[in-house]
Computed example of a mutant assay.
Amino acid sequence: MRIAADRPEPGTSNFVEGLPDGPILLLRPDRLGDVLLSLPAFAAVKQHWPNRPVVAAVSSYTAPIVVACPFIDDVWALPVVDGRGRFSPDTWHDKPRPAAAVSYFSDFPNALAIWRQRIPRRLGPASKLAQIFYNHRVRQRRSQSIKPEWAYNLDLSHALIRLAGDEPGPAPGAPLLHFDDVTDDDRVAFGREHGLPPERNWVFIHPGSGGSAPAPTPADYTRVADSIAESGCRFVITAGPNELPLAEQLAGTMQHLSPTVYHSQGGLVDFARNLRHADLFISGSTGPAHLAGALARPTATFYPNLPTAGPLRWQTLAPEARRFAFTPPDGAAPFDMTAIDYAAVGRELGVWLAGRAG
């Protein structure tokens, strides 16, 4: 395929030129965690252009939760092909042409699609073959994993702002999801349904793992819970639609602690609304951990001891003082989750919870 240049190629992200009229399209059509870690980048664009429509193009699976981001004016739910949302001809039907598009991950079919629409400003990472379709690129070297994923995403939004000749403002923080119809009675109702005293701390444990990173076993989580239990908390084991057997297995190993199982079957938005009740959310490095973080809930997350999959690169959006990360110790194999001292983890979290209750 011969790609004709539609404008002189600046080759760097600091090429200063204003944006024409039209909405700004933000593209992140992959997994839940990746999309949630793009929310600060989405927010930065809307904060800088509050009067310009900001559109998120995401996979149909994540679209319902992105609707809850107050910094997004419209969400395009892309059909999923090979695990990732893809533009189709129907996507552009009766829609105004965006003034700019930002791809937060280089993806050949989608980059080709926005090039074919002749979007004037097309910005994305200077990596992979897909970069040929962008007329503004940012060299990031994400494989070095020297900062969080959300910060890499934010760099791209900041590049767009500088492209318009401006300087970015402060990075937005969590919570980055908002539900208009929530009330204080929601926690009371959830507690009544699951037998949870409202005056106690509720510790949610999510044993499932939808990503590539290994997660602790039910026996490992039970060791954590045994130590935390001394703080007087109650436990909620969470499960997505296909995760009930694993949740029930964990409930069996924790039966002496009388946990309750919350089997979410009402979709991502319903799950997110109920995660707001967590006083602490414990899991492996997976989408629900990032969902809790985007809600500014305290997170305790287990990671491999490896930069590309570790706690710096994949930290949650929870505030720093409420974000805990645990890895195998130095000297152990990076993915050997059995090397973690889970009882010590539980003691640390239990002390924090007890102090929070006081």
Rank of each mutant, 00 (worst) to 15 (best):
S264D: 03
H277A: 14
R297L: 12
R347P: 04
L291M: 15
H263S: 08
S285R: 13
T327A: 13
A296Y: 08
P329E: 01
P304S: 05
Q265L: 14
V261H: 05
V261F: 09
P329F: 00
Q255T: 14
V269F: 09
G310C: 06
F302R: 04
T260P: 01
G252D: 14
G331I: 02
Y262C: 07
R273W: 08
Q255V: 13
A292Q: 04
G346N: 07
L275S: 10
G267F: 13
F302L: 03
D270Y: 04
Q255Y: 11
Q249F: 09
G331K: 05
S285G: 10
A296H: 11
P304H: 03
T316Q: 05
G252L: 12
P329R: 02
N274A: 13
A339D: 10
G331E: 09
T316N: 12
A309F: 14
L291W: 08
R322D: 15
L295H: 11
L291A: 02
G252Y: 09
A272F: 13
S264C: 05
T301E: 12
F335T: 13
N274D: 14
L275N: 12
I282A: 01
P307N: 00
R313G: 07
T286V: 07
H290K: 03
F271H: 10
S283R: 00
G252A: 15
H263Q: 11
F326Q: 08
R322V: 05
F302P: 04
S283Q: 01
Y262K: 07
F326P: 11
R297D: 11
R322A: 15
G331C: 01
G266P: 04
F302A: 06
T301D: 13
A278S: 10
D341S: 05
F281E: 00
Y262E: 05
L295F: 09
L312P: 05
H263N: 08
A292D: 06
P259G: 06
G287D: 03
A343L: 08
L317G: 09
A300C: 07
T299G: 14
L280N: 01
A343N: 11
M337F: 12
F324Q: 01
A343C: 08
M254P: 11
A251T: 06
G267Y: 11
A318C: 01
P328G: 01
R347F: 06
A296G: 09
G310W: 11
P329V: 00
G267L: 13
F271R: 09
A296N: 13
H277T: 12
T253W: 08
D341M: 03
